[in-house]
């Protein structure tokens, strides 16, 4: 039973850690399926985290913070679109530039506004997204197996976790069952086909990039106002890139991407548990090695186990008519 509870709490933190990855990976899904490579997921999350925490700290509202986070992220997304779609610039360079800008800007502004070494003030509970206890969770707690499962794992997350999970089937439905999705997938494969069908490639790609901005905004706000209680310099710490890796591992499909995010998050949750624990037969493993676990896993999976991951054919290529 104790093993079961330990496992439940491990899975519980897996879900929490997977949420920002999932939101960012889905952001990447929209962008890359439309043919715009998005290395800048990291930067967008970071500015969103900062804007959300700063706004929540000043106004005491998590929702206002979320709005500010989304706005900041969308502005960065529009910049990316302006560089890559309107001016047909190099998408990787633009993304990297945005990441650098985001890292520098959040640190500088944070220091200038709050004078706490780049941090924002600790948020009180009502300026954060609190945990939601689902109906009957308490009542069912005593039911063997299912009770704890429902109480520990399914209930008791904040609203953004449920939102992120709901966006997965929604994204699937949009991508495969709607006109917008059909065009989105088409423009990432063969923009010329979309153009000759009389649809604007530019407009479609901007829409995709905006959705990516929106989702990264939620992911960033989650980091600083739901999972954490304030902003810290570089608090994304590579999550944007991990999300990108999850997208590749998920072969640019929403549901497999969800599982890839859960896998990475599980590795992350596991490494927190394993720190300082003596493993049978090995002894205590250095913390640094354990902390590297999720990243090592990423490298290994991407190198060997993905099989053939075929990105959308036109991703990374600005659309220029012949001649």
């Amino acid at each position: 039973m104790e093993m079961f509870l330990t496992l439940l709490s491990l899975l519980d933190s897996t879900v929490r850690l997977a949420t920002p990855l999932l939101l960012a990976a889905l952001a990447g899904f929209y962008s890359e399926r439309a043919g715009v490579v998005d290395i800048g997921l990291e930067g967008k999350m970071l500015v969103a985290a900062f804007a959300a925490a700063a706004t929540a700290a000043l106004h005491g509202s998590a929702w206002l913070g979320l709005g500010a986070g989304i706005l900041a992220s969308v502005i960065l997304a529009l910049l990316h679109g302006f560089a890559c779609i309107t001016h047909k610039g190099n998408q990787v360079v633009s993304g990297v530039a945005l990441n650098i800008v985001a890292l520098g800007l959040t640190a500088v502004l944070g220091n200038a506004w709050f004078e706490m070494g780049g941090r924002t003030p600790n948020l009180p509970a009502d300026a954060r997204f609190g945990e939601i206890t689902l109906p009957l969770a308490e009542a069912l707690r005593g039911v063997p197996l299912l009770g704890p499962l429902y109480f520990e794992l399914i209930s008791g997350h904040n609203i953004l976790v449920y939102l992120a999970l709901a966006i997965v089937p929604l994204t699937w439905w949009i991508a495969y069952r709607t006109r917008f999705g059909l065009r989105l997938r088409a423009v990432g494969e063969n923009p010329a086909a979309v153009d000759t069908a009389g649809i604007s490639v530019t407009k479609l790609r901007y829409q995709a990039v905006l959705i990516a901005g929106l989702l990264c905004g939620i992911a960033g706000a989650y980091l600083s106002t739901a999972q954490g209680a304030g902003f810290q310099t570089n608090m994304t710490a590579g999550k944007g890139f991990l999300a990108l890796a999850a997208l590749i591992l998920g072969k640019w499909k929403p549901v497999p991407t969800l599982f890839a995010c859960l896998l990475f998050a599980f590795a992350d949750a596991l490494q927190t548990r394993l720190q300082g624990v003596a493993l049978p037969g090995i002894g205590e493993v250095p913390v640094q090695l354990i902390e590297a676990l999720p990243y090592l896993l990423t490298v290994l999976l991407l190198a060997g186990f993905v099989g053939k991951a075929t990105p959308p054919k036109a991703s990374g290529r600005p659309y220029v008519k012949d001649r």
Partner: peptide, 15 residues
Amino acid sequence: MLVETFTVLENLLLG
């Protein structure tokens, strides 16, 4: 001007 990863019907529908 076809999207190769689409079915024929999806290509016809596009636009």
